[in-house]
């Protein structure tokens, strides 16, 4: 049974959280692979946040919060929510596959 979601605020917040999750997946992939290939990025994360992993975590929290706050001011529908969840799921899966594959290649050839 498919019905219309009447509580718009909940819908918008859920979509904002899903979009924030997708953005975090993209950010972590870029920062992780980028920091391994370009040492100034890793050094900057270490300098600013004491440890590169803490830097990635802090930036992930910051990005999620920004996306959540910005996107919860826009309208949402059940279709846009479903799409956002699918994007969050697939970006997370692709991020995990890309990072693992990168570290396999990195361990074998670098």
């Amino acid at each position: 049974m498919t019905t219309h979601v009447r509580d718009t605020n909940l819908l918008i917040r859920a979509r904002a959280a899903a979009e924030g999750t997708a953005a975090v997946a993209v950010l972590i992939t870029i920062l992780t692979i980028g920091a391994e290939l370009w040492s100034p990025l890793k050094d900057t994360l270490k300098t600013v946040f004491a440890h590169h992993w803490l830097g990635k975590s802090a930036l992930a929290i910051f990005l999620f919060t920004v996306i959540f706050l910005i996107r919860r001011k826009t309208s949402a529908s059940t279709q846009s929510l479903e799409r956002a969840v699918l994007i969050a799921v697939w970006s997370s899966i692709l991020s995990a596959i890309m990072m693992t594959a990168f570290f396999v290649v990195h361990a074998l050839f670098f």
Binding site: T2, V5, R6, A14, A17, A18, T21, T78, A88, S92
Partner: peptide
């Protein structure tokens, strides 16, 4: 790093489904 955000999104989405169900 991704897990807490995914889990938080799951919580928000269950709040939506609690109010009104949508199969998709």
């Amino acid at each position: 790093i991704m897990l807490p955000f995914m889990s938080l999104a799951l919580w928000f989405l269950i709040l939506v489904l609690e109010k009104q169900q949508d199969d998709k």
